[in-house]
């Protein structure tokens, strides 16, 4: 499928002040492409959640946006530390977020389940000591 748009955003570990900048840019770009408002909101929520996760939990990584005529795809890839128990991490309410994240209003253990709920397709792969990759697809047509 022809890719209409691809952009890679580096996300720094612990950069709480700027967390969300990539998602804001992604939302504005997709809006310019004229993407359906409902899909746009779902992509935006998932993008912000995954970007926050990179800031809060990872040792740094990238968020990649790909758009083709059928699908918006978001890929989050980090360099560690990896998730020991993915099933546990996917459980609503389970969180390992630190105090700083909680002070900002996050870390309620809703992030991963919320991404899965908003995406059409959701895949997470993780290896301790290597890193985590999350791939989310959002279908543009019913």
């Amino acid at each position: 499928m022809a890719i209409l748009l691809e952009q890679v955003f580096p996300v720094e570990a612990g950069a709480y002040a700027t967390a969300g900048e990539a998602s804001t840019t992604i939302k504005r770009k997709l809006k310019q492409l004229g993407i359906d408002a409902n899909v746009l909101r779902r992509v935006s929520v998932a993008s912000y959640e995954v970007e926050l996760n990179l800031v809060i939990h990872s040792m740094g990584g990238t968020l990649t946006l790909q758009v083709d005529p059928e699908m918006v795809t978001l890929i989050s890839k980090d360099v560690g530390p990896g998730i020991p128990d993915i099933d546990k991490a996917m459980t609503e309410g389970f969180s390992t977020a630190n105090e700083e994240a909680r002070t900002l209003g996050f870390g309620a253990g809703m992030g991963l389940p919320n991404m899965k709920r908003n995406a059409t397709t959701f895949d997470i792969q993780s290896q301790v000591g290597v890193g985590t990759t999350i791939m989310m697809g959002f279908a543009l047509r019913g």
Binding site: A17, S23, T24, R41, V45, G105
Partner: peptide, 22 residues
Amino acid sequence: DKTVLITGLINTHVVRTAEMLD
């Protein structure tokens, strides 16, 4: 969307969250 958010939390992430959700 078309929601009002009432909050006692004041930081830039309140605005970012709001923007993501319209």
